[in-house]
């Protein structure tokens, strides 16, 4: 275990906590982008180069952008300004539930006989990944492609809504 890993873990968890506890929605999204970068850094540290760059490309480049757009489109509602007493008690119980889950998880991990194989990171090249995706995982790849297409069309239909009869649609 080395210092880099501990640093990555601390930064990722810290930014994630700050994002989840923050009052400002936009700061939360930007902090989460940092947390996702931290996860990508962990992938890089573990030797999964392709997964790390895919993570940055998808999460920081695409998902955070879409989330920011959604934040701006729905900004009129000043929701998070003042949580009432009901919200506070709910937050408290949520944190307790999460802490209980964390306690159970950490306890189980520490008790189980997980011996790390001392060997170096399994080297996997992009070519190998491509061959695997096209060979044994080809069906899954097709399914993911179909899923993405369906999700994209569904998202467009949901977000565009019923817009007939609005004059600004006809330039």
């Amino acid at each position: 275990m080395n210092a880099v890993l501990i640093l990555i873990a601390l930064v990722t968890v810290g930014t994630a906590i700050a994002a989840m506890a923050g009052r400002n929605l936009l700061h939360s999204v930007l902090l989460l982008a940092l947390a996702w970068t931290g996860v990508a850094a962990f992938y890089l540290w573990a030797g999964a180069e392709f997964a790390a760059f895919a993570q940055v490309l998808v999460y920081v480049g695409a998902i955070s952008m879409v989330v920011l757009f959604a934040v701006l489109l729905t900004r009129r509602s000043r929701d998070e300004a003042a949580p009432g007493p009901a919200g506070q008690s709910r937050a408290l119980s949520a944190v307790m539930a999460a802490a209980a889950v964390a306690g159970v998880l950490v306890g189980a991990i520490l008790r189980s006989p997980l011996a790390a194989s001392p060997g170096p990171a399994p080297a996997v090249t992009v070519r190998q990944l491509g061959a695997e995706l096209m060979g044994p995982y080809a069906a899954a790849l097709l399914a993911v492609g179909v899923l993405l297409t369906v999700a994209l069309i569904g998202a467009v239909v949901l977000a565009a809504g019923d817009r007939t009869g609005q004059p600004e649609d006809n330039p």
Binding site: L30, A33, E49, L57, T125
Partner: peptide, 17 residues
């Protein structure tokens, strides 16, 4: 890098942020 092109476009995509 083994996936250098992906790295390039990942870093480029992050500039939008």
């Amino acid at each position: 890098l083994d996936s250098a092109v992906l790295y390039f476009f990942a870093a480029g995509a992050a500039t939008e942020l």
